[in-house]
């Protein structure tokens, strides 16, 4: 218990004194995960829209595949991409293994099904009149799509927050694809795993605190946003 409180104290100290090594790890973590979510979100929203609003053969099967993909462990995604990106793999020529780009690919694969499934659920239950009204008022399909996203922003932002929460805290694929290289691919979860295995709990706790605070802030913001929406509706 004493060790835990001392480590926590030291963790807070490291955070507030701006320890460069610690903040570099935090920076890499956010940079990689934000890029992954930014790349995944537009494509996921379009896919979710197509699944919810268009009728085409295989639509139900696709929905089932995305729902199944939600439960794929991060380490399996990491392993699959590792095989693809390794020198002997079909994408070996890209030389992406142990780079931030490889980590982004892994995180993209992890958050994409979640974003699609949650956005699909939000759009599926949305009011179709929003889409039709926008079209009848002269909006282009793209503008009508953006209007639809705006009308369902609470559910969709919730999906994006959940997707970000999944990838910022995942360790399996980042470890396998990034290689945990200091100042380059070492992010919060891989650093926590490493520091804990070395017995230096302070860094681990400090990084864990960052994740906790981030989760808290995101959820408070989302809650406030949804609260406002409920008042209006």
């Amino acid at each position: 218990m004493e060790t835990l409180s001392a480590a926590t104290y030291q963790a807070v100290y490291l955070l507030f004194t701006g320890d460069p090594a610690l903040w570099t790890i935090i920076g890499i973590s956010f940079s990689v995960s934000l890029r992954a979510i930014v790349y995944a979100t537009p494509l996921a929203l379009l896919t979710a829209f197509a699944l919810a609003y268009l009728r085409f053969p295989g639509r139900r099967l696709l929905v089932s595949i995305f729902n199944t993909a939600l439960s794929i462990p991060a380490v399996v995604v990491g392993l699959t991409l590792y095989i693809l990106l390794s020198k002997a793999g079909p994408l070996g020529e890209w030389r992406l293994l142990f780079t931030q780009e490889a980590m982004i690919m892994g995180q993209f694969c992890l958050c994409f099904p979640l974003l699609v499934a949650m956005s699909h659920a939000a759009l599926q239950s949305s009011d179709r009149r929003a889409w039709e009204t926008a079209l009848t008022l002269g909006a282009s399909p793209l503008r009508a799509f953006l209007t639809l996203l705006h009308e369902n922003r609470f559910g969709l932002v919730g999906a994006i927050v959940a997707g970000f929460g999944r990838i910022i805290a995942e360790v399996g694929s980042s470890m396998m694809l990034g290689g945990n290289i200091l100042n380059y691919t070492r992010n919060i979860p891989t650093a926590i795993a490493l520091e804990t295995s070395k017995g230096s709990f302070a860094e681990g706790i400090a990084l864990g605190l960052v994740l906790l605070v981030m989760a808290l802030v995101l959820n408070i913001l989302l809650g406030q946003m949804q609260g406002k929406g409920e008042v209006i509706q």
């Binding site: 009149r129 039709e132 009204t133 009848t136 209007t147 705006h150 009308e151 209006i232 509706q233």
Partner: peptide, 16 residues
């Protein structure tokens, strides 16, 4: 048709 004709649903949808 979309330029010349406006359709209003039975219960019109107003944007938020």
């Amino acid at each position: 048709l979309r330029r010349d004709i406006c359709y209003l649903h039975q219960q019109p949808y107003l944007f938020d």
